[in-house]
Design a protein around this nucleic acid. Structure first.
Lengths: 247, 247
DNA sequence: GGAATAGTGTCTTTAAGACACTATCAA
DNA sequence: TTGATAGTGTCTTAAAGACACTATTCC
């Protein structure tokens, strides 16, 4: 299709990161304050341009992740979320962003990235509700990322990525409740996580706290796909999912 | 992060299309023969660079689709599949492709796009098996697209996009069988498509063929999400989905 | 014993899977 | 009546949802 002396338009590529974690039982997302125009002073997702020298997109995401969270990359689940490339989304020109989703276990209070940015964990709800405004189309990216995480929790063992190496079933339940924003029946939850063979495996040891029966500890099992899946209670049947208009 | 006199690297953006249809009961994918280097003469997915002037990515995908299939765009389901941007994937330089999945009802034999390309429907199996070689990383894109379609058939009403406006339940079953590559029990299939309320609605009329009882005709219903879903028989439980190595 | 947390068992309903025959039409 | 295609009904098993009590520890 290219003609003789025709050259295709080029675009700038960024990666943006939806980094989720649990803090005091609630789902939080990592936001940075933009230090420069455009949207200077506004909250935004961590991210940035690809490096020169043919950096891979996924490598760039890992680089941004460790720059923002100072977190050992191997600890963190990272996956592609989608492309955001509408022509009006960045006032600097045609900037196409590849969004990624990262799931981290709870981190120490100060985020303390190696970058100078002011970074903070913000409750996911504050972003979803629009209470916190984000630069660019980052609110939509954040929404998509959170929705993606919710769905992945149903069919994959992703939930364990929110926990440390060892965790109790109650902790795992709190992960599901926090991410889904629902509350679950303890008995059914125990039944289901244990029915999904390969999801969690007993660590042998117990964890004792002040008062109360000690909890058995588990580790993530070898399976990444849950069967049977843990379907979230909402939206199962009654919800709306009607097509727009017929032709 | 950009320094004072720093400018980010730019990339070329393409769209690639995995266009699937059913021909004589088998899943086919549209391939074109490349008219120029690189990979001249080799089969490839339809696609091309974005137009100048800030063309939207999805618009570019629609444009390529109609250039290749001469198909009314409103008939066709089109959605983003993912980004393919490994630095070595295109010898011309850093070319990042946004892959899309398109599902079309059976088309008349000659593809007859408006472009000069030699385009043809190839059985999906020939691509999956490697019997037909594709340029670039297009085999992986095709594999991902087919797998995506298979999964979407389980949870969405996508299957109707392979049919005309009116179709019989037997035809719908053939869609599932062709895309999944399995054979299904007729009775269970009838039960399930009818249990998923809003999936298909009776068109009132019958279709008569030569010999045999006339079949009731249906149209796509208003629901896009299937509940209960139609889970494919394979992979339900017994399959492997083990994590690579711990840590 | 009391407070705190961890863990379990049963019943009902829904949906999946397996399985073979009846219905309607044209020739 | 035969050939061809369309459509259906039952039983068993798997899993979801609802629901309340027992177990273990620390004080």
């Amino acid at each position: 299709m290219p003609d003789d002396a025709w050259s295709p338009p080029s675009v700038l590529l960024t990666v943006d990161l939806v980094i989720l974690t649990l803090r005091d039982g609630r789902l939080h997302i990592l936001l940075v304050e933009r230090g420069e125009a455009p949207f200077q002073g506004m909250s935004a997702l961590p991210g940035g341009f690809l490096n020169h020298g043919g950096e891979e997109i996924l490598d760039a995401a890992h680089r941004e992740l460790s720059e923002e969270t100072a977190l050992a990359s191997s600890w963190v689940h990272l996956e592609e979320l989608g492309v955001y490339g509408e022509s009006g989304r960045d006032p600097r020109g045609r900037v196409v962003s590849v969004a990624h989703l990262a799931i981290a276990p709870g981190l120490p209070d100060p985020v303390a990235g190696t970058d100078a940015f002011d970074a903070a964990w913000i409750p996911a709800n504050a972003v979803l509700s629009g209470e916190v405004e984000l630069a660019f189309d980052h609110r939509r990216i954040a929404r998509d990322g959170i929705e993606h995480a919710r769905t992945k929790l149903e069919f994959s063992s992703l939930a364990t990525a929110f926990c440390g190496t060892e965790f109790t079933i109650a902790e795992l339940q709190h992960v599901y409740e926090a991410v889904w924003g629902t509350s679950l029946d303890t008995r059914n939850f125990y039944r289901k996580v244990q029915a999904a063979k390969g999801f969690i495996i007993p660590a042998g040891t117990d964890r004792r706290r002040t008062g109360g029966r000690p909890a058995r500890l588990y580790r993530a099992g070898p399976k990444t796909i849950l069967f049977p899946p843990l379907i979230r209670p909402t939206m199962s049947a009654t919800e709306e999912n009607t097509r727009g208009e017929e032709e």
